[in-house]
Computed example of a mutant assay.
Amino acid sequence: MYKQILGISLILILAGIILVNFVQQNNETQEDDLSEMNGDPPSQGGAIAPDSIGLDPGEDAPEFELETLNGDRIKLSDLEGKKVILNFWATWCGPCRDEMPEMQEFYDEHDDEVEMLAVNLTDTETNESDIPKFIDEFGFTYPILLDEDGAVSDEYKGSIAVPTTYFIGTDGVIQAPPRIGPMTYEFMEETINSIN
């Protein structure tokens, strides 16, 4: 009886070790795939996203017109002639919260040459009133657009993984691969300087 219990215990321990190694290896592979999509070296952490996410550089940025949190309307084609950072986010998204202060810093220093548009995935929010509370709490001043029915994020494939960010050139063309995951100030500056 003792040998049977010992044998079963040993089998369960070995099965547990194999399962842990499989899960860990699978997570590392997915992180590497995500890093390759962003052009970054593999790193710990990050969201998992499918390979087909986003629009490709060279494609015209799909036109849209959305209402801002302040009640104004912004039409993408009205911004032609300016570089545009188009960011998809939600209040429930931790990585979005991490990048937004750096987006604010970038906006404060570059708003004369770059338009920052933060498109909230409003249809995914638990409570729409969370959006202005969140923005007011942290004092973000760049335009917050409300994608109430999810049509714009669907067009840009931005609701699959958030945050997702596009860099649109002065000609209205997407000029860099979409950034999936949080951005740093340095990343925004480097990318904006690399596009027309």
Rank of each mutant, 00 (worst) to 15 (best):
T91H: 10
L76K: 02
L121W: 00
V119R: 00
Q175T: 03
N120G: 04
A90H: 02
E137G: 12
G54D: 01
F134M: 04
R97I: 10
K82H: 15
V84D: 07
G139V: 05
G139W: 06
D149S: 14
C93Q: 01
L79D: 05
D171N: 13
Q104D: 02
D171P: 10
T141I: 09
E113G: 07
F187I: 11
T170G: 06
D147L: 06
E115S: 14
V173G: 08
N87M: 01
F134P: 00
P101H: 05
F64N: 06
R73W: 14
D78L: 10
I168L: 04
I180H: 01
C96E: 01
D147G: 10
D123K: 12
D51L: 12
A151C: 11
D130I: 02
D123E: 14
I160Y: 04
H110K: 09
E155H: 08
D108P: 03
E105I: 07
S153T: 03
M100H: 10
E115I: 08
P178E: 05
G139F: 07
M188S: 03
M188W: 00
L55N: 00
F167R: 00
S52L: 04
P132E: 05
E59I: 11
I131T: 05
L66R: 13
E67R: 14
L86A: 09
G94W: 07
I174N: 12
A151K: 15
P62R: 05
E109M: 06
K157G: 07
T184C: 11
A161I: 02
D56R: 14
W89Q: 01
D149W: 11
R73A: 15
L86F: 11
V119M: 00
T184Y: 06
D171Q: 09
E137K: 13
L146T: 06
L145N: 03
E109T: 02
I53C: 04
P182S: 11
L117I: 12
E63P: 10
Y156C: 03
P143C: 12
D149T: 14
T91Y: 05
R179D: 06
P57R: 11
S77Q: 09
P57N: 12
L86Q: 08
P62M: 08
D60K: 15
M183L: 14
C93D: 01
P132A: 13
I174S: 10
T68Q: 10
K133M: 12
M183D: 07
A61H: 05
V162P: 07
F187V: 12
